[in-house]
Amino acid sequence: MFEAQLVEGKTFKAIIEAIKDLVVDCNLDCSEEEVAIQSMDSAHVSLVAVRLSASAFSNYRCDRPNSLGINTANMSKILKMLGKDDSITFKAEDESPDSLTMLFEGGKSTIADFELKLMDIETEQLGIPDTPYQCTIQMRADEFQRIVRDLQVLGDTCTISCGKEGVRFSVTGAIGNGNILVRSSDEDKDKVTINMEEPVELNFALRYLNFFTKATPLAENVVISMSPDVPVVVEYPIEEFGHVKFYLAPKIEE
């Protein structure tokens, strides 16, 4: 039996909204410790990893590990009916369940229940090594979203270079080019923290960075981690309960 109640149901809704443009079908991997999602986008360029620890839920029971295969667009349709202050209670049987039951409960006398059909999804699980990164940038999530959105009008590829003066986001395109430099700042409102061992410069597809910023409502700050010649990690922490992380393979010179 899997049964779990998330008091702030809107957090789960925001997670699905954050990933549904990248991931069509995915497994909710439920275990005693957590509910997790790991999935590549259809082009196999990026990877999405979601974690919500059991402590994020007010009641959590998972008798045995289970993978619940969902279609994110269909899940999103059901979550449209979630009230902004509603809790969600998830329920599924142990042995290859056909459906996932979700109860939406608000402060009033209304209880809504929905059943989402599940499917068998075969996925390739990638092992992501837990290695330190040469550069880690923490900045406001809405500021990162604005930068990515603004630079997209100039071109397809963004060069992110982290150096002594800060982090530079650069785009070169047919109509011209642009650079946005973000420097370390202690100001409470716009705090930017840059930890750098060595300068790093990498190229990324703006289209994917833009997909990642759909997770902006989940977190005040985004953490961007880079090392030479490996994927960038764009992390949106979900309080102390988990995260949505996006991994994007770099573009390299041929």
């Binding site: 196999h44 360029v45 092992g127 992501i128 190229n203 994007l248 393979a249 573009k251 390299i252 010179e253």
Partner: peptide, 14 residues
Amino acid sequence: ETVQTYIRQYYPLN
């Protein structure tokens, strides 16, 4: 010219 790489090139299958 820059070419896009794939995520599988960097992480092993579990």
